[in-house]
Design a protein around this nucleic acid. Structure first.
Lengths: 149, 149
DNA sequence: TGTATTTTGAAATCCGTTTTCATTTTCTTG
DNA sequence: CAAGAAAATGAAAACGGATTTCAAAATACA
């Protein structure tokens, strides 16, 4: 099993793309934090240490990560694309707190199996899926309950 | 059980909003076709019969439908918001063909139950969820297979 | 090393969504 | 059944995130 950095370098070589210092900096920074950051937030974060790297480069590089499989693009309905590190190829889904924005990952084999069953009954050949549960985390639920009139 | 039109009129009255001919035309047109249309596509469709109704009004009215529950906003990751008629309050999920764009609705009680289980183990209080399965419908899968070199 | 090719960063552009604003329509109430 | 107040309309502008353009800089192949 190759690590993420090797995977990316292989990808660049395969595509005859060039290995630049910006790309390496962005990759390392991206791997360091597996949060679900939007391009904007990630850029602002990165800018603190590397103010010379432009937004366009960050955007393009995150897209490359998604293309070569080391990142996954997510969209939780707030109009912003978020990127997360895609360790191994295990799929996972998300619980999204609409109160504080917290995102929790989970995995459930039974649900995945049932999805395959659904697809089969419709003669569908699944390539991907997305499952998101929206609601309130324990903290937000508690504070909402206590603030009711 | 009230029908969609009554629900909308009640909603307008409750919110002290006005009942206009445009809103009624848009409502009837929307109910007539339960496809998953984007605002743009719906507008283009409507314009054939009612060229005087503006895009902004269509957009605002679809938003009202979503607010009062007779429509659901959907987002299948192609950057366009789609609206569908929300009959009764049964939730359903979607199979999306990435080949031809066809969208099939399905419902699965077992998956819904497992979602509740997942939420409980994370102390989450679910308000909503979305599940989409992306892949190829039978026709697209067949044509892809036959076009392989 | 030289040179062709790719990448970069800033700014411009894209495109769906939303808002603005002057005008028109609806609805309330006297 | 009129005003007058409040809300809705349509055209156009503004918005915001994603993407592209372009000239200059960096990379890597020969």
């Amino acid at each position: 099993m190759k690590n993420q950095e090797e995977l990316f370098l292989d990808f660049l070589a395969r595509k005859r793309l060039k290995n630049t210092s910006q790309r390496m900096i962005i990759l390392k920074s991206f791997l360091r934090q597996s949060l679900h950051l939007s391009t904007e937030d990630f850029y602002l974060q990165l800018r603190k240490k590397h103010p010379a790297i432009g937004y366009a480069t960050v955007h393009r590089t995150l897209k490359l990560f998604a293309e070569c499989g080391i990142a996954a693009e997510r969209n939780f309905g707030d109009g912003q694309t978020r990127f997360e590190v895609n360790y191994d190829n295990e799929h996972h889904d998300h619980l999204v707190c609409t109160g504080c924005g917290k995102i929790i990952e989970f995995e459930n084999r039974q649900i995945e199996q049932l999805q395959l069953d659904v697809a089969r009954t419709h003669n569908f050949f699944i390539k991907d899926h997305r499952l998101e549960l929206y609601g309130l985390c324990a903290a937000c639920h508690a504070s909402e309950a206590s603030s009711l009139s």
